[in-house]
Each structure stands twice: as structure tokens, then as C-alpha cells.
Amino acid sequence: MTTAMVEVVGLAKRYEAVRAVDGIDFTLAPGEVVGLLGGNGAGKTTTIAMLLGLLVPSAGRVRIFGQDFLAHRHRCLPRMNFSSPYVDLPNRLTVEQNLAVYARLYGVADRKARIAELARDLDIADLLDRPSGKLSSGQKTRLALAKALVNRPSLLLLDEPTASLDPDTADWVRGYLERYRRESGAAILLASHNMAEVERLCDRVLMMKAGRIVDRGRPEELLARYGRQNLEQVFLDIARDRAQGQAAAS
């Protein structure tokens, strides 16, 4: 039996009367990609923020790499990383300077070699001297991914990693993530609105609504359970409160 890399029990976040996340449980095994799916305000970003230590939960327990994350997050953070199109890297720094700063922050020993490796893998070698603020959306996404991988994380948290990308770049990013997972054995928690992306990348899916996990399973299990052809239809069934039995008939 594989020990869970992430173990979340009864995790909740309340803001006065609002239950942003309402007692969720899940695990993430090494090498597994789990998708967090849900509409706006479902609690995906709040969940990721609690797993990164940006937000203190109102209740619950989080263990990462076997450690109590809420008590000792700085023991876990060097082996984790994060990417989101909604959080920038300093625009005035060049691509190389940004990566050098984050390589130092994450204590990467072979900084130059690692930056060169990422530049080659992510096809940003020609951009190393360019200020980050002058990159296109696709180039920024590749830089964000390079930053997220600079410490060779064992656990990667991604918040809508392909939002606002053209289909070609988005496909490339998904392919790269698949390769990274395969080669590194890293676990990935992926919050996304893109159903095709989730179907392609995720081993399991957690369907969130109003702060709760309302369904879960392998993509093919969910499709069978709701009698649907794709996850988008499953997503709509859940969003519109159609029960599993009714879904296929509607």
C-alpha cells in the first residue's frame, strides 16, 4: 500500500456565515494527478490556498509528506510548488533573474544547471534575457511553469494552469505536465474549469460544489455513473443539481 503524499481530513474554511470549504476529505498518492472540479466559488482555490499555507483552515487536518502541515508547513514547502495564471512574477526582472531568485528561495543547489535544463525543456532559452513583463501569455505560462518546477517538486499545486492560453500552447503545457509526472513521480493537484484537460491529465476527480466534495472518482467512473459522454456534461449535471439517475435521461 502506498502512503498518501497528501491527506486531508475534515478541512473547512468559514468566513462568518459563509462556508467556503465545508469539511472535505481526500488523499493524493505519489505520482497521482487529482483534479479539483467545480464552478466559480465552489471552493477549489480556497482548498489550494489552505494546502499552500496561505490560508488558515477553520477546522480539519492536513498531512503532507507525513508531516502535520498546519503546524510545520515550512518543513513541507521546499518540496512543493505552485503555479497560477492569477499570480505574477516580478515584471521588471528578466526570465533568468526570476528563476535565479526562486532557485535560491527553494535552496536549489545546482541553480545554473537547473535553469539551463528548464530553459531547454520549456523552450524559453531565447527568452532568458527578456523582462518577464514583456512576455506573451503563453511565454508567461511557460515561465510560471519553470518557476513551479525549479525545485523539482514532489507535490505540485496548479490553479487553472492553462487558463487564457491558445489551444496549441495549452496542449503543449498539458503534454509537459504529463511528462513531468511520469519522469518525476510527482503528485499533482489540479484545479481547473477545463474538462478536456481534466479528462486527459487526471487519475481521479473531486467534484466540488458550495464548498463540499459532492462526487468523486476516476473520470471513466463518473462518466458511467452519470451516463454521460464527457466530464463537461457531468459537471453541468452536478452544477444544475441533476441526480445521477436523472442525468442520463435529461
Partner: peptide
């Protein structure tokens, strides 16, 4: 404030920086 203006604070606080 430079970190706030450049929207970089989030990245810093999820890094091992204490």
C-alpha cells in the same frame, strides 16, 4: 510594497521563505 505592486507576495509566502 514592491512585492504587492508586482503581485509576487503570494509566490513568496508559498516558498520556503519564513
Amino acid at each position: 510594497l514592491e512585492e504587492m505592486w508586482s503581485r509576487n507576495l503570494c509566490h513568496l509566502f508559498v516558498s520556503p521563505l519564513r
